[in-house]
Design a protein around this nucleic acid. Structure first.
Lengths: 194, 194
DNA sequence: GGGAGCATGTAACGGGTTACATGATTGG
DNA sequence: CCAATCATGTAACCCGTTACATGCTCCC
């Protein structure tokens, strides 16, 4: 993962998911696992995927055992809901992780690119259709990111907003790249078969 | 993964890694597991990561059991080397997979973005340094992709070259996005603390 | 009353990694 | 001859997903 290869004394070795969750809690809001999932879905998910619910709860239990978060049942409510909050030790650990861990190269798994790479075995029209669908998805994501960024700006989340803006630009760039890919594929067909 | 949720009769359900390996073999060259790793490292890795050697061999064994590839010991050489080749059934399965599987959205895990998102807990200079390193890495990858594309062009690999060109543009775009992120972060500092 | 969303969790599984082991071949 | 690379593989481990189970609460 994006952790330090050699373990650093200041923070435990944890999967990036754990740090992401801690990060969500670092804005000093008590949140349930369910809330965390929703938040993750329209913020972190834009540049770092979103874990399954089951793993969120598992990871929260681990973080609590380590003393990096605390939880308490929702007061005045006899539901099963639990609210999680970051502890001072949690903030220390997260800060140390930010200061000393290696981000590593970004991981990209681009299913469409893989298929286009094997284009000699695919029907050209099918391939073009896939690229077009992908481009439209990227456009939607760019818009989604833009609205999320707007909400962040209003809330005064400064760093998050900068990154979500970055995400929005990322997805617009992706859409443009898809269009260029489409053009290249079309040119390829006009010349002849491979 | 990027496979079909409902299983299709034309091809078995396999992890994307397996299809990627089959794809490498679909250019009608006999290759060893070792060769496949090298090939993957400077082609598929640019848009779809590169699996560990141990998994390559495991996946090849599975593909052979399914009859999608065959292997034979290197002739005239008593080393342990084995050469793998795709079978007609393998080509059929790969073609069907291309025709019917869903690529799904690209998966991005951007460790740097995650850290910048938590910038309120990081030292600004450290953050800037990380972004700069990342930008330089992206530039290097763009160049690497460009040279790989050139080799592909000479060899006449048409679709692969188109996709590697796409990769090169992707990484240059990434580098530019990093520069914009850097500027945004700098602007943020000049205004005040969060 | 009933369905949609809220809320948390268990169990099984698998893909992929790391670490390690082994030995052969090639080049300086 | 010795190091680097070639070449293949085993074993342990764990992250993360899928599928499933459970029950509550809100609102029409």
């Amino acid at each position: 993962m994006g952790d330090t290869p050699t373990d650093h004394p200041d923070f435990p070795e944890l999967p990036a998911t754990a740090w992401a969750l801690l990060g969500l809690l670092s804005f000093d809001r008590e949140m349930s696992g369910y809330d965390l999932r929703k938040w993750a879905d329209n913020s972190i998910a834009l540049f770092y995927w979103s874990p399954a619910p089951s793993q969120i709860y598992a990871e929260l239990r681990r973080l609590e055992q380590l003393g990096l978060v605390t939880s308490r049942p929702e007061p005045g409510d006899n539901r099963k809901k639990r609210l999680f909050a970051i502890t001072p030790e949690g903030t220390v650990a997260l800060t140390a992780w930010l200061a000393h861990s290696d981000p590593g190269p970004p991981v990209l798994k681009h299913g469409l690119a893989l298929r286009a790479w094997l284009g000699h075995l695919a029907e050209p029209s099918r391939l073009r259709q896939l690229v077009i669908e992908h481009r439209d998805q990227m456009r939607e994501l760019a818009e989604q990111a833009a609205t999320v960024a707007e909400r962040g700006r209003e809330q005064g989340w400064r760093h998050p907003t900068v990154v979500i803006d970055w995400s929005s630009r990322y997805y617009t760039a992706q859409a443009e790249l898809a269009d260029e890919l489409l053009a290249d594929l079309q040119r390829l067909e006009e010349v002849g078969d491979s």
